[in-house]
């Protein structure tokens, strides 16, 4: 099972809101000029930020509450930046049932416009079921 493909663009305000809530003072996330001082073309994304792409992706399946996040693995294959268009897809890569619980491995893939993989976020979730 997988979602359709969504275009995802993170903007400067998204990054600023994200680092502000974390209290993250890293200068590379503050503005373009600071990012350039450290050799970046523009503001890069904080390492966990690609996972919020979920808010723009509609999954055709619903994991029933209570939904518990058991494990998370993320691989950033390339640096991701603000204002770049990415393509996002989520797929269920494994699933099994034990007693009344459903164990789901769900993977977020983010590609650039040329289809090069930039990010994988593999989530192990426990839910009350799947509909």
């Amino acid at each position: 099972m997988k979602t359709k493909e969504y275009e995802i663009i993170f903007n400067k305000e998204d990054v600023q809101q994200f680092v502000q809530l974390l209290g993250d003072p890293n200068p590379i996330f503050q503005c373009q000029s600071e990012a350039k001082v450290y050799g970046f073309e523009t503001i890069p994304l904080p390492p966990t930020m690609p996972m919020i792409a979920y808010k723009w992706i509609e999954t055709p399946w619903k994991l029933q509450h209570p939904l518990i996040h058991r494990k998370q693995q993320c691989i950033q294959h390339q640096r991701m930046y603000i204002d770049k268009p990415y393509k996002g897809i989520v797929m269920i890569t494994d699933q099994f049932q034990r007693q009344n619980l459903t164990f789901t491995k769900q993977t977020l893939h983010l590609y650039n416009k040329d289809g090069i993989l930039y990010f994988e976020g593999i989530s192990d979730l426990i839910s009350g079921g799947l509909s």
Binding site: L22, D24, P46, P47, R70, K71, Q76
Partner: peptide, 25 residues
């Protein structure tokens, strides 16, 4: 996100990329 923010700011250079991370809750 909080853990990695602290790691980057307290123990690494600002520009170092975290290539892969894995956590169990």
């Amino acid at each position: 996100a909080k853990v990695l923010s602290i790691l980057s700011n307290e123990l690494l250079e600002p520009q170092v990329m975290l290539h892969k991370y894995e956590f169990t809750f």
